[in-house]
């Protein structure tokens, strides 16, 4: 009887997770294996596929576009993610200083983070426009423009090989509220007695930040970091719409290159090789970050759910 009940439970369990199991086979593990297989083929999707061995990978290594899209994606990641995490933390800490009206401010900061897609990309494309966009007049008004012109002139943003990629980094900062909201929740979860006992010991603001706030936030920083890096390797819509990868491939993000090879030039096998390289890069980065985390992430032993 007991055994029967257990069997029934196991059967119900498998039934419950069956949609995911089917989806996992059909849309994750199957396609991953298929794409590995296809990456050794040459296939334009019309004529039958032909086996080319390591041909796609050999071509990949010789393809200047691969290095260009890797360079663009890496530079973007290296600047956009730390800036986003840093500003997110700064805003969250400022909000947590007993500021009045925090609910309204939090809403406004968080709002851009939930907006995405074509409409946002078009909005920023117009903001950066040197003829009618709003950004350059503001920069002139604040006398920031001459400084930027010293760095690289003219400051035509998406039309400038130098300024195009920074434009994407600035746009990403607009959505800083996504990281902020998670920090803020974590900040509010730090037990106040930690700060009280530090106060009794006469700790300074900085040392409280350094020795209480940062360690308590480190698991959340790790989460934001991993999600941010994975996200930055997936930038597509904004580059497709705002610049189409230009000028002169200055904003050719990895996935835009992948999309073009596969769906515009119909190089399915080559596209799969690109996809596999992306997959391996993301795994390596995630593992590196996770591995480094034991050195800087602090897990309180008795962390409770509530």
């Amino acid at each position: 009887m007991n055994l029967g009940a257990r069997k029934r439970e196991a059967l119900s369990g498998y039934f419950a997770i069956s949609p995911w199991l089917i989806g996992f086979l059909a849309f994750i593990i199957g396609p991953i294996l298929a794409s590995l297989f296809l990456s050794f083929m040459k296939w334009d999707i019309i004529t039958p596929p032909a086996f080319v061995g390591g041909g796609n990978y050999k071509r990949l290594i010789e393809d200047p576009l691969l290095y260009q899209c890797l360079k663009v994606t890496f530079i973007y990641t290296v600047f956009a993610i730390p800036l986003n995490l840093g500003f997110g933390l700064l805003v969250a800490i400022l909000m947590n200083q007993g500021v009045k009206g925090i609910n309204i401010f939090r809403t406004i900061f968080y709002m851009p983070a939930i907006l995405s897609g074509v409409a946002v990309a078009i909005l920023w494309q117009k903001i950066f426009n040197p003829h009618f966009g709003v950004l350059n007049p503001i920069l002139k008004l604040l006398h920031i423009m001459p400084v930027l012109e010293l760095v690289s002139s003219p400051v035509t943003w998406l039309y400038s090989e130098f300024w195009a990629l920074p434009s994407f980094i600035i746009m990403n900062l607009w959505a800083v509220g996504g990281a902020m909201i998670i920090y803020l929740a974590a900040l509010q979860g730090i037990p106040t007695h930690l700060f009280e006992s530090a106060d009794i010991d006469g700790a300074s603001v900085w040392s409280k930040f350094r020795h209480i706030t940062l360690p308590m936030l480190s698991p959340v920083i790790l989460f934001n970091l991993i999600m941010g890096v994975i996200g930055s390797f997936q930038v597509f819509t904004s580059s497709y719409i705002m610049t189409g990868g230009g000028p002169n491939n200055a904003t050719l993000f990895y996935v835009l290159n992948l999309y073009r090879q596969a769906f515009q030039y119909h190089r399915m096998g080559y596209g799969c090789a690109l996809a596999w390289v992306l997959f391996i890069i993301i795994i390596v980065f995630t593992l590196l970050i996770l591995k480094s985390s034991s050195a800087w992430v602090y897990y309180a032993g008795a962390r409770r759910g509530k």
Binding site: F27, I28, G30, P31, I32, A34, S35, L38, I230, F233, Q234, F236, V255, L258, Y259, A262, M268, G271, C272, A275, W276, L278, F279, I282
Partner: peptide, 9 residues
Amino acid sequence: IPAQVTMIP
């Protein structure tokens, strides 16, 4: 796993 990895298959 980013969706782009499995997009082509």
